[in-house]
Amino acid sequence: MPSRILLEIFKIKKFTISLAIILLLLFIGLVGPSIYPTDPFEAVFRPEDPPSSKNPLGTDSYGRDVLAQLLHGIRMSLYIGFTASLIALAIGVAIGSIAGVKGGLTDEVLMSVTNVVLALPSILLMLLIAAYFKYRDPMLVSIIIGVTSWPWVARAVRAQLLSLRAREFVHFSRMAGYSDFRIAVEDLLPNMAAYIFMALVLLMSGAMMAEAGLSMIGVGITRGASLGIMLYWAQMLEAVRRGLWWWFVPPGSVLVALSASLLMISTALDEYFSPRLKGR
């Protein structure tokens, strides 16, 4: 992709601000735990203490430090969000492009499968699958989220591919004697790239939400902390009714900030690319 496009995208305020928020949270998740080395699982503080200089976000009912949990939780949620969305993206792009390129019977079979999976409510499917695993590590949770979230990507990729293939600029390349491979690399892929990136962004926000949902209902990761697991603990130990706001407000706010920023990024990209990709 020409660097001019990147330059123009970075001039969109909505895009840069959202990206900055994501990068900041990513940075916090990556280095936070080492800068603030308090163990998130060690119950060594006075339980249910409000924020203080010793525990900037207070402690939970077991006497564990909430800030430390939050830092580890951000890291975990981003990790699951990213791996799950990559898995979903890989499946979706593979199925969508095979269907779009092969056409015919292959296309029909793949799209029928996709439509059926699309009609199955992914959240119920995730809960159901997760229920049968006794131990759920972050990778398993990512896989469960990934294998249930790909259908709309497959459909979008196929539709986009079909529409691109019918564009006249592909004919021009063909008339210049380009091979199928070169056409795929020069004419199809760069125009798909923006869409695929948008899909990744949306998948990621969906995956982090799904992780939180799974955790809240009791089938999240079985060891470690994520934003969803923090909310789950808060819910199980009645943090709301006991007025321990510092326990459930931070993880929820971070989750909303992450998800809203991702949505803004994809909206900004869509507004930038749609008119161009349609040629107008």
Binding site: S205, M209, A212, G213, M216, L231, A234, Q235, V240, R241, G243, W245, F248, V249, G252, L255, V256, S259, A260, L263, M264
Partner: peptide, 23 residues
């Protein structure tokens, strides 16, 4: 609406419950 659309129902529920029932 942008923020609400990205807010999990159950977290908004926690906030509302805390604000209107507890406080």
């Amino acid at each position: 609406s942008l923020i609400l659309s990205q807010t999990p129902y159950y977290w908004l529920a926690m906030i509302l419950l805390y604000t209107f029932s507890v406080k």
